[in-house]
Design a protein around this nucleic acid. Structure first.
Lengths: 122, 122, 122, 122
DNA sequence: GTGGTCTAGACCACT
DNA sequence: GTGGTCTAGACCACT
């Protein structure tokens, strides 16, 4: 389900967080569906439970998942995600990145196409 | 010309790099124009010359500036920028950020508008 | 009468407790009125009777309800509620929260308005 | 500077977080002032650095402090705090608590007085 | 079994 | 020296 790249610049907990976020955004994991337990992920990726826990904690604070004591972690309904002002910070990253890409010669049309198609098509 | 924010998460050399990059992208600093010397920047911002040097080194490796022994640093012609595979990495950041914003409820139209207008208009 | 949110951070017994407390505070359930039996609540919400029992036990210890052997649970007269030092703890929460909100820029006038109007008016 | 209560319901990292938050709100720790290092707090309270780290991470995500790699943690300017939608959640806690206190017989005037005076005066 | 907290300690990057 | 990540493993509450 998730692949860890040990050569990545990203910390392991960030990779776990980002991969799960993608699965949620793509609808592979659906609202109120249970996601694997902290221990299961830890064992299957051969990493420490604390590392998984940190990824889950961040996803929870971003509103992507919620936890139920003794039962597990579950995908939040879509409208709960990104309620914490992350949207503004993300928009700045988006805008800055777009500006640099345009300077580097990527046309605005190409960028809009990527958005319309929901990702980079190769 | 440049403002340093000591409270920023970004290291100082990253701020210098990003600010200079913006000045180049906006055309304030134009192709083949000489940019201030490492020493001048260091003195005017009261920071270590090594820090400035590091920013310049990164801008050079990204193709935004070039150096001439004994004469200083100069803005590269636009077509030299971002030749080192940065474009792919940037496109990934762009695409991932756009996908998350769409999931959070920002419409694709809004994102394309930001691109067309060259930034976030408030 | 009561809605359970399975996605909530709150345990189910806490939700039952809080919802009943609200109904009592709003006067929907009036002093010495009988509240639904543990079994009835459990059936209608499809939850375990033990969970409802726990909510009732807490409401009883906070002085909001009282039980009569063989007859059921009843709303306490208003003056019986909160006699067990809960008031002090609540006042601390209230005071701490108010202080943080003021620090975050909410005016003291706004906070007093909320109190006078009996809730957040939107 | 900080006292830990091992009998408290609150986790240690929550106590550290809340105590530091209070010191910041009261102006004891002022904007851009350096707060003690993770290790210093850990040694002086005889707790694990990871526990302190977690408290600091939460304060950072709430906008109360910022960190500079290799230099330490610093108090954020006041306007950076609570940018993440915490305000709404806090307002709900405030409003619910006030309603319960009023039911328990505390007058609305008393509550407004507490707010005006910036805390509980005994 | 599952989430959650905490300890003890290693190791890395940056200053 | 300081922040930051990660491991290994203990222990608790709740279901």
């Amino acid at each position: 389900m998730i692949q860890i790249d040990y050569r990545s610049q990203l910390a392991i907990f960030e990779q776990v967080r980002d991969e799960l976020k993608k699965l949620i955004m793509r609808g592979v994991l659906r609202p109120d569906e249970r996601i694997p337990s902290v221990r299961d992920i830890a064992v299957s990726l051969s990493i420490n439970p604390n590392t998984v826990m940190r990824a889950y904690r961040e996803l929870e604070s971003e509103g992507f998942i919620y936890s139920v004591r003794g039962r597990g972690h579950f995908v939040s309904p879509r409208e709960d995600a990104g309620q914490k002002g992350d949207r503004e910070a993300l928009l700045k990253v988006f805008s800055d990145t777009a500006a640099e890409l345009v300077y580097l010669g990527v046309t605005k049309e190409t960028l809009c196409d990527i958005i319309q198609k929901g990702g980079i098509v190769e």
